[in-house]
């Protein structure tokens, strides 16, 4: 990157460190922090939407829809979330390929599952094996985002369901007395009021989501954990920048990153709570 870094073997001390920390691989490491933030930026609203739909379904007067909603919300209770992560990534991938297989190759007679193999026709592969590397990575990342959204959507549905029930009944009865339809009551009275009740739970959920992001590594994404392991491992003199096992320092950096991130979130959530509580007659 810098002119002084042309020959790493000749430099030492601080210059060496600056050159070392600005190599191309380190730039990829810094960029992977962006990957984590991108995951958070997409997952949080999508999970909230899933949660909203789940909470609505749990309140539905139609029994099958209600059971579906309650089943979704209680899904995450007894089972470790990491089991869901590992399961959904394979299950979604196979499900999509299976659907495409049936749509694109109707005259294919062999079964899809043959012993320990899962075989679909070439056109149904996702992404196509001829696709550039970028699409493979984007597809994996998309699967990861969807998986995170399903799991955290179930958590969010739990929070929102509780928040909807916490809105005082009198408010809804008043709306009814004014002749509002159930839909209008929901949109104009219930939803605007429920957020203050949902905020503590959602704030907590945001913290859990931040702390779940290193699991991206398990889903095969080149995230910060991947790069920390990659860069920190001992480098022999065959490399431009030889160094012993430095993984501990890289993981220490990740630890500090997460501590700073959760601290910042804590402060923002506290401010938001104060702001939304303004004018409320009680502290929820």
């Amino acid at each position: 990157m810098f002119a002084a870094c042309a020959d790493p073997g000749q430099i030492e001390g601080l210059t060496w460190l600056v050159c070392y920390l600005t190599t191309g691989k380190h730039m990829a490491f810094y960029a992977s922090f962006g990957t984590v933030l991108l995951l958070l930026a997409i997952t949080a609203p999508v999970a909230l939407a899933f949660g909203f739909v789940g909470a609505m379904a749990s309140r539905s007067p139609v029994p099958p829809l209600r059971w579906l909603g309650l089943g979704y919300t209680s899904m995450v209770r007894g089972v470790p979330d990491i089991a869901f992560f590992l399961f959904f990534v394979i299950a979604l991938d196979q499900g999509l390929e299976w659907l495409r297989h049936h749509a694109m190759c109707p005259d294919w007679t062999d079964p899809v599952r043959q012993g320990a193999n899962f075989i679909v026709c070439t056109q149904a592969k996702l992404p196509l094996s001829s696709a550039p590397q970028f699409w493979h990575e984007a597809y994996n990342f998309g699967l990861a985002i969807f998986t995170f959204s399903i799991v955290f959507g179930a958590f969010a549905a739990n929070v929102l369901y509780g928040a909807m029930r916490a809105v005082p009944r009198g408010q809804l009865e008043t709306a009814q007395a004014y002749g509002l339809t159930p839909g209008q009551t929901f949109r104009r009275i219930l939803v605007p009021q429920m957020w203050i009740y949902a905020l503590p739970g959602l704030g907590n959920l945001w913290m859990i989501l931040i702390k779940a992001t290193p699991l991206l590594f398990l889903l095969g994404i080149e995230d910060i954990v991947y790069w920390a392991r990659e860069l920190g491992g001992a480098k022999t003199s065959a490399f431009a920048y030889p160094h012993p096992d430095w993984r501990i320092w890289y993981f220490l950096a990740l630890l500090l990153f997460y501590l700073a991130f959760t601290k910042l979130s804590e402060i923002v959530i506290a401010r938001l709570t104060r702001r939304l509580s303004r004018g409320q007659a009680f502290a929820p």
Partner: peptide, 14 residues
């Protein structure tokens, strides 16, 4: 409480 358990495991192991 502020850092992921996953990172704590890695750091401890290293």
């Amino acid at each position: 409480r502020g850092s992921p358990l996953f990172i704590q495991f890695f750091l401890a192991y290293e």
